[in-house]
Every structure is written in C-alpha cells, then in structure tokens.
Amino acid sequence: MSSHDNHPEGVAHHFETAEQQFDSGKLGIWTFLLTEVLFFSALFVAYTMYRDNYPEVFQFASQYLDTNLGALNTLVLLLSSFTIAWGVRNAMLGETKMLTINLIITLICAAGFMVIKAEEYGHKFHEGTLWGGHEHSIFQLDASKVDPEIAAHSKAWSNPDGEFSAAVKDLDPEFRQKLGIFFGVYFCLTGLHGIHVLIGMILLTWLLIRNLRGEFGPKNFAAVDFIALYWHLVDLIWIFLFPLLYLIS
C-alpha cells in the first residue's frame, strides 16, 4: 500500500498501468464467457442427442410452444443488447445521462423478457405441459392447434387411424414419455437461461446505481463493458434457443 504515491489513480496496487488492468479484466471476462458456453453445452448436447433420435417427437412438441411469444422475446432481447451496446459507447464517451437511459431500457427489456417467459411457463403449468416426472404432466393440446400433417407423421397416437382428439388418453404412452423428455430439456434450457437473465438484471441494477453516483466515465467504464459482454452472451444463447425450440418443422 505504501507504493500508492507514484501509482496511477484508479489502478489496483498489483497492476502497473491502467491498460494492464483493463486488459486483464477483459481477458478475464472472455475466459468467463468461455466457461458459460461450456456450462450451457451439456444441455445443448442433450437437446441434439434427443432430437437426433426422436425427430418426430420434437416436431410434434414444438407445436405446444407459442412461436409469436418466442419471436417477441427474441426481439426484446435484441433490443436490450442494442441498448447495452449503446450504453458502453455512452460510458466510453462520458455521456452519463444517456447511459442511465440505456441502462433503464435494458433493464425494462430484461424484465419484459421475464414477464413473457413467466406467461409461457404459467400457461404450461396450467395446461399440464410439463416434464415427464411431474405429477400434473398430461400434455393436453388444443385440437385446433395441431397441424394434421405433423400429427399424421409423428405417430403420436395409439390408434393411428383415429381422429385426433384433445383427450390425453389417446397419446401413445411411449410418445408421451418422449414428449416429457422434450419438455424436460425445454425447461432446463429456458430455466437456466432465465436464471442468467435474472443475474444480468441484478448486475444491470448495480451498474445503474453506480452510474447514478457518477462513477463511470472515459477513464472508468470497464464494469459497463464487461457486464455488457455478459449480457450479449445471454442474448446469443437465446438467438440459438429460439429456432431450436420454437421453430421445428
């Protein structure tokens, strides 16, 4: 601590220069993003494996998901990604007010994403479209929503010649089991992603508070930059989740 006299301001004791400190942070956050990619990888592997083996089940199951809500969520996240990227620019240029606005928009988008997600989840819990081991899992499906072609192709019924009915007992038991797997993977993937959004919201709030205190500026914007990178990764994962889960045809 005694060497503080000739140490550059805002630079921790063990770094020589501000550049070294920033570079270290940047490498650190990128390495962390690498661990995040690997963290999600297991679920993507699960997805690929089961989709590869039960393509017809995945095609059928995706009808339970509301593509419009998914697309809306994609746009919401993209917008938040845009505003946080803009926010980084604001921080670098010292535009504190604009940074505040951008952070707030990002937060609102994140909250919006979670609200839409909660809506989707709520609907599924209500309808019993849940993972295999859940006691209320029944996979009821509105007959009007079913694409007759997919229905014929998927052999989802014990009586393939019969008309599709919303009655659950008609679903082939093995097919139901596999549907359960799809929703297991769906809930794990979107749930884990949702947790990341929640963590992102906490971090964004922290940034907002620090910004309101006037802590960020051209010399000190690392935190904004790094959290923005994290937020973009959350967006990236959703960019892949959306077509993989909602758009299976």
């Binding site: 550059p8 630079v11 220069t17 501000a18 550049e19 920033f22 914007f221």
Partner: peptide, 10 residues
C-alpha cells in the same frame, strides 16, 4: 505513461 495509454483502452 498511463495517461498516454488511455487511447488504447476500448
């Protein structure tokens, strides 16, 4: 030197 290096950051 730290002042001069600011330009490189970000």
């Amino acid at each position: 030197s730290s002042h001069g290096s600011e330009g490189h950051i970000g």
